[in-house]
Amino acid sequence: MVDGTCAPEFAPLRDLLTKNLADGTDAGASVAVIHDGELVVDLWGGEARPGVPWREDTVVMTWSVTKVMAALTVLVLADRGDVDLDSPVADYWPDFATNGKDGVLVRHLLSHTSGVPGWSRPVTVEDLLDLERSSDWLAEESLWYEPGVGSAYQIVDHGHLLDGLVRRAAGRPLADVFRDEVAGPFADDFMIGVPDDQQDRCADLLPPPPSGVDYSKLPPDSFLLRTMANPLLLPEACNSPDWRRGSVGSVGGHGNARGVAQIQAAVSHGGAYAGRSLLSDATIDRVFDVQASGLDQVLMQPVTWGIGYGLPTPSAPAVPDGRTCWWSGWGGSVVVNALDSRTTVAYVPNQMASHLLASPRTDTYLTAAFDCVAAL
């Protein structure tokens, strides 16, 4: 039921994936660990769709794990001097300066402290797929709160904000820069925009159980309602060819655990992995500059934000302390870069759980992986 490779020292991860697939905790999933330059775990199993096995090259939408791929793209541009993290966004995207946003810095976009966590106008799923139009609407948007004063998770518009920046700084869409200059040889295993000839590789998302949250009790001006419900993006819509073809850099990336880990391992391995050098030590250090720490106004949970990544926080107890950066996607996908041990761990399922920052299933995979690392 479980295929792939696993170093003997990491056998507990194979056992866990086998158990979860057998008892229905997972429908289809992949798990990968890169440690000290080696892909020591590359496992997959279960079903991508009813009657279709999860194969080595199966990919699935990873929701907000996409955000750290988009953020890594901007960090690569910053490392090259094409973008200054401390400069106003309007230096690259002049129209963004309207309605008081002239003080929004590039690092504010990356750390979810921009003051623009969503659109005030009604937005449809179809609008999201028209990146230039919906990004232009963000350029017209007024601030929801003062930039840099706490975080409000850019749950859907994060990719549009970064795409608007990258288009002007690099002259190409973020998805293209990511594919060609960041993902490189691993681009087939993580895509922001799935080409038509690759769509048969996609696993179908299976929706999570009800969260139990009574959204009707939230005030209508709640940031959570204003972002999550505008537009309401449901798993069923995300299984469509049009959505998969789109390049929404906040939630629309498709990948497997191996692809996620191989791209992100440059962060945990001093800026370089598998012969490709992406980041200098100085740029990696900037990831750990705390930009906000406390209750996020959208997630309504405590989050510590560095530049482009979440940092260890009590609301994600399985993420190890230390020099660690990470992020997770709705439903359970996760990637954790632990620089102290030169380790990247990724888990990508198609059966969604009730999961925003953490959940028992994802935490169990992370705990098993880092227990194995600690025992080496």
Rank of each mutant, 00 (worst) to 15 (best):
V2G: 09
A11N: 11
T18E: 15
T18L: 08
L21F: 09
D23R: 12
A27L: 13
A32Y: 13
W44M: 06
V60G: 00
W63K: 01
M69I: 01
L72V: 06
T73N: 05
D84V: 06
D84L: 00
N99S: 13
G100Y: 00
G103M: 09
V116M: 07
P117A: 08
W119R: 08
V125W: 00
S134L: 02
L143S: 13
L143A: 07
L143H: 11
W144S: 08
G150D: 07
D157W: 02
L161P: 03
V177H: 00
D180F: 01
G184W: 05
I192E: 00
C202H: 09
V213Q: 08
D214W: 13
P220T: 14
S222T: 14
L224D: 04
T227N: 06
D242C: 02
R244P: 04
S250L: 07
G252K: 00
G259R: 04
V267C: 04
S268V: 09
H269Y: 02
A272I: 04
Y273L: 03
L279N: 04
V290P: 01
Q291V: 03
V298G: 02
V298Q: 09
V298S: 00
Y309K: 07
Y309P: 09
A316I: 07
S328Q: 02
R342L: 06
T343Q: 05
T344V: 10
N350Y: 04
A353R: 12
S359W: 11
R361A: 15
A374E: 13
